[in-house]
């Protein structure tokens, strides 16, 4: 198999050029989707038969939780690429994704707590789903702290990549915790194999919000990655020309 395309893909300059074209689209589409989805979910969706209006927190909680886990999976993928192919761009991606992932992980935990109070009667329980999500938060913080603690870029890249890879076992635990154990947290509403257990007039804004949040993540990641490229490639001629 010919892997040259893979290395071309990892060229920072190539990425900088192409991402500049995507950015405006990502910005407009993601923000429009989020606004439409949240206004729909807040004002136009019917209330839930059991939870009343407090269920409307789902339109943030679920997209944030999905993102917190997906971003980690992407970081683990970038970590594998960093370790195997030593592609600089992969390590830059790993670095810039961590703060975004941590923000959505916190959003997921906080909205979950706010939702838990009126529905379950408590802000927090140490059940398997909530605890594994908290571990994910600590993994994110650990990866960010590790990079801050190591000053050589090369060594930091390697250490962060290994920690990211090791932590990825937590992702299936989060996903299946509600099936494997008796948790207070309910099972998944959106399933790959079955019909979602949600009325369509609630499901549509939720799906829109999920797509909007993912695009928003991509947009923020591209923004941050471009800055990281400028910072790390500052000695190259094209960055000097770009900046001056």
């Amino acid at each position: 198999m010919n892997w040259t395309f893979f290395h071309k893909l990892g060229s920072p300059k190539w990425f900088y050029d192409i991402s500049g074209k995507w950015l405006p689209w990502l910005q407009v589409i993601s923000l429009v989707l989020i606004v439409v989805a949240l206004v729909w979910g807040l004002a136009f969706s019917p209330s839930d038969y059991l939870q009343g209006n407090s269920y409307r927190i789902i339109f943030i909680h679920v997209p944030a939780s999905f993102l917190a886990q997906s971003v980690y999976l992407m970081m683990a993928t970038a970590a594998a690429v960093t370790l195997i192919w030593k592609i600089k761009l992969a390590d830059m991606a790993l670095k810039v994704m961590a703060p975004i992932g941590v923000s959505f992980c916190i959003l997921s935990l906080v909205t979950g707590a706010i939702w838990g109070q009126p529905t379950w009667g408590t802000w927090w329980v140490w059940d398997a789903r909530l605890t594994s999500m908290l571990i994910l938060l600590f993994l994110y913080i650990g990866i960010i702290a590790l990079r801050g603690a190591i000053h050589t870029t090369e060594a930091a890249a390697k250490a962060c990549a290994i920690l990211s890879l090791v932590g990825v076992v937590n992702i299936p635990i989060i996903k299946f915790s509600v099936d494997w154990w008796n948790t207070l947290h309910q099972g998944a509403t959106l399933k790959l194999t079955e019909k979602p257990s949600m009325a369509p007039e609630m499901l549509w804004p939720l799906l829109l919000a999920i797509v909007g949040f993912y695009l928003f993540f991509m947009m923020v990641m591209v923004l941050r990655l471009r800055i990281e490229i400028i910072s790390r490639e500052r000695k190259t001629r094209w960055v000097k020309e770009l900046v001056s």
């Binding site: 209330s47 839930d48 038969y49 269920y55 529905t119 379950w120 009667g121 309910q186 509403t189 009325a199």
Partner: peptide, 16 residues
């Protein structure tokens, strides 16, 4: 302490 556990089904009151 008593906590309420609900399931993953969401629907409007009319449907219910």
């Amino acid at each position: 302490e008593v906590l309420a556990k609900h399931d993953e089904n969401y629907m409007p009151p009319e449907v219910q």
